[in-house]
């Protein structure tokens, strides 16, 4: 496994391809049944998936189980998967669906819409930790803290995907099952909301 990893890595160096191209290259190799590419796919994205999953569901082990199921399903069905352009957002979308579905199932809402709006999205913004750590009494920062808390969960998620996972609006839209403009609006509204509540209380 180690040696194959090195070979992938050196391939990417030789050709001097971008991380995006490299991700697609790994995805295609994985689809053809390349086991080392499968491992690498997990190494590239596991921590992003775990982090994202934890926004919905605090139970870390539960999220890890879902990620495991997700990768096992991918391996089983690899031959019939599409040639996705951005493996990362594809994985995030798949995990999101799975988590919401599993969560609903656990609540006995067997028939519920799998993409139920009934979900949590929790984010620990840096500002909170920053405030606690430094015992800062600065009024402005405190207000920012309050206004971040008042973001809707959709705004939080969009902001998180944009600034933490660094997805494009297109990818955010697909991940959240909304259209492009809604994705843009969510992020802009979140920023506007913060500004209005913070700068001009």
């Amino acid at each position: 496994m180690l040696s194959s990893k090195i070979s992938h890595a050196s391939k990417s160096k030789q050709r001097n391809i971008s991380p995006e191209e490299y991700a697609v290259h790994i995805w295609l190799s994985f689809k053809q049944g390349d086991e080392s590419a499968f491992t690498e796919l997990m190494e590239l994205y596991y921590s992003s998936l775990l982090n994202y999953g934890n926004r919905f569901q605090k139970d870390r082990e539960f999220v890890k189980d879902c990620i495991q199921d997700l990768f096992l399903e991918l391996w089983r069905t690899r031959e019939s998967l599409g040639d996705v352009i951005t493996p990362k957002s594809y994985l995030l979308i798949s995990l999101r669906r799975k988590l919401l579905r599993e969560k609903n199932r656990m609540r006995w809402f067997m028939e519920a819409d799998p993409i139920s709006e009934d979900y949590e999205f929790e984010v620990q913004f840096a500002i909170e930790t920053y405030l606690i750590k430094n015992e800062i009494q600065h009024e402005d920062l405190k207000k920012l803290h309050v206004s971040l808390d008042s973001l809707t969960k959709r705004q939080r998620e969009a902001v998180y995907l944009r600034f933490y996972q660094e997805l494009s609006y297109d990818e955010i839209a697909r991940t959240m099952s909304i259209n492009y403009h809604s994705a843009v609006n969510l992020v802009y509204e979140a920023i506007k909301f913060i500004r209005n509540n913070w700068m001009y209380p």
Partner: peptide
């Protein structure tokens, strides 16, 4: 201020945890 405030603290990334989770997936596969 907003950019700094909107940063997320990535949780402590535990490489060991991730590695063992990946091994577990491979074994299960």
């Amino acid at each position: 201020s907003i950019i700094i405030g909107l940063q997320y603290f990535p949780e402590e990334e535990n490489q060991e945890e991730i590695d063992s989770a990946i091994q577990q997936i491979l074994k299960q596969r």
